[in-house]
Design a protein around this nucleic acid. Structure first.
Lengths: 152, 152
DNA sequence: GTTGAAAACATGAGTGG
DNA sequence: CCACTCATGTTTTCAAC
């Protein structure tokens, strides 16, 4: 289980993962080596899944964002179906959901034409009987999964 | 504008942002200093928005994920409304969308009770007339916005 | 874009609470 | 088990080319 100090380290790393351990240490009131040991444990235990860069989608040819609810005539939660969705490059996330749709998919494409071709690929996944697409006009904001912390 | 080399660097940094410049340099066939200069430019131009850690939501008390479509009787795309959504801690993303709903929101909470309280907060945002919630049972996958690259 | 040196940083060993 | 200090090896970073 993680404690308050871990959470404070996590929040700072989410804001900027290039922050030196010495600076993190000063912020949480520990030595750099201790913070290092904690981050190491957080990585090994899977709390920190990876260190990554957030890329502007429009800059890499993925300026169009849409959410697609996919319905099917078979259960779409098993590995084969998930793999099939994973094989479609434009899909960023796939979630098995409760309710009428069985899968909710987040799609990024260069243009609406590219979006159309992703939809075509989705239709080719075995069991898919229909899709309903919601196109995003503008993203208000998007931020990391923030743990609750009293004083950042 | 970014070139092929930039894209290849981006893909590798997305996979692991702790990769040393020397290793990136070897992968793309440049010197470490060149790669450093490129990454610097990518950051300053906003292509790389930030370097961050991906945290397991369940480990920080956000194991419940839901997508909420929010309808309103006023236009919900202006800054005030977006700010109001940003003020709700459980909301990870807010998108202004085309179609019947005006805003699509991604919510993370510790429990279904926590989800309920986020929904209550959403209802308190001026102009909101209704919500429709889709609860995620399981996330099939979630990955970075990948630029298209011939050989990674 | 390159090389090479200097500074900053991460990392591991050993020690004590 | 957790945190500290100190020493060492990498890595980042910035000159000059």
């Amino acid at each position: 289980m993680i404690d308050e100090t871990d959470r404070r380290i996590l929040v700072r790393l989410q804001r900027d993962a290039t922050t030196p351990y010495a600076e993190l240490a000063a912020a949480v009131g520990l030595s750099a080596a201790s913070v290092h040991a904690r981050v190491r444990r957080l990585r090994e235990s899977g709390v920190i899944r990876r260190t990554t860069v957030e890329v502007d989608p429009a800059a890499v040819g993925r300026g169009v964002l849409a959410f697609v609810t996919v319905t099917g005539d078979v259960w779409m939660g098993d590995p084969d179906t998930v793999e099939a969705f994973a094989g479609i490059a434009g899909i960023e996330e796939a979630h098995i959901v409760a309710g009428t749709a069985s899968v909710l998919v987040k799609v990024r494409a260069a243009t609406t034409e590219g979006l159309q071709s992703v939809l075509r690929e989705i239709f080719h996944v075995p069991g898919v009987t229909g899709t309903q697409t919601t196109v995003v006009l503008e993203t208000g904001f998007s931020r990391p999964v923030t743990p609750e912390v009293p004083s950042p």
